[in-house]
Simulated assay, not measured.
Amino acid sequence: MANYVDGFVIPVPKNKIAAYLSTAKKGAKIWREHGALDYKECVGDDLSVKFGLPFPKGIRAKSGETVVFSYIVFKSRAHRDKVNAKVMKDPRLAAMCDPNDMPFDCNRMLYGGFKVIVS
């Protein structure tokens, strides 16, 4: 049973979704190989909601951008820390993270670790 999740919200230019998908598939493989229990990347589909704060407004998406919501599942925070330490040392990740060739603006990515309270 999973007890910890890393969550991400990322504004991605619509014309870079294909490039983002390629990067995401590689990332999923790397995280799973190092022990993540699950890895999901979800692109916005119904973002014009009339209640709450819509993701595009909350992340200040610009014209031509959509929102990607992603999460990685771990056994515990300690497990997350162990997996992420391995991932950060993986040369495949470094090769994917050229700041001049990213399909999104890393400085606008929202990120956090979450304890699972209902499953």
Rank of each mutant, 00 (worst) to 15 (best):
V67G: 10
V116H: 03
G27C: 11
F55I: 10
K26W: 00
V5P: 02
S70N: 12
Y20E: 03
M88G: 09
N100Q: 12
M1W: 00
K86P: 03
G27H: 07
Y4L: 06
L37K: 11
L37G: 04
M1G: 12
K29P: 00
K57T: 13
F74P: 02
D98I: 05
Y4V: 06
G112I: 10
V116Y: 02
A18G: 05
R32L: 15
K115H: 11
F74E: 02
M88N: 13
I10Q: 09
M102I: 04
K82F: 07
T23L: 15
P13R: 08
D101N: 15
K57F: 01
S63I: 01
L93M: 10
Y4E: 06
D81K: 11
P103T: 10
G64I: 08
R77I: 04
V9Y: 01
D90A: 08
N84G: 04
F104I: 08
K16G: 07
A28L: 06
S22V: 07
E33G: 05
Y71S: 09
D81S: 08
K40Q: 08
M1A: 12
M88I: 08
F104T: 08
M1I: 01
K50W: 04
A19I: 02
G27T: 08
I117P: 04
S76T: 01
I17M: 09
A19K: 08
S119V: 08
E65L: 09
G113E: 00
C97V: 12
K25V: 09
S48D: 15
K115Y: 11
N15G: 09
L21Q: 14
V5R: 07
V67N: 08
P13Y: 04
S119K: 15
S48W: 12
M102R: 11
K29I: 12
A18Y: 00
D45W: 07
W31Y: 14
G112P: 03
V43T: 13
C42N: 15
G113R: 03
L110Y: 11
Y111L: 08
I72C: 06
A18H: 04
A2D: 10
I17Q: 05
L37H: 03
N107P: 03
P56K: 06
G112Q: 05
S48E: 14
W31R: 07
F74Q: 00
C42M: 14
I117Y: 14
F8Q: 07
K16V: 01
K57W: 01
L110I: 14
M1V: 02
K16D: 06
N107I: 01
V83Y: 06
C106I: 13
D6Q: 12
E41Y: 05
E65A: 12
R32H: 06
D105G: 14
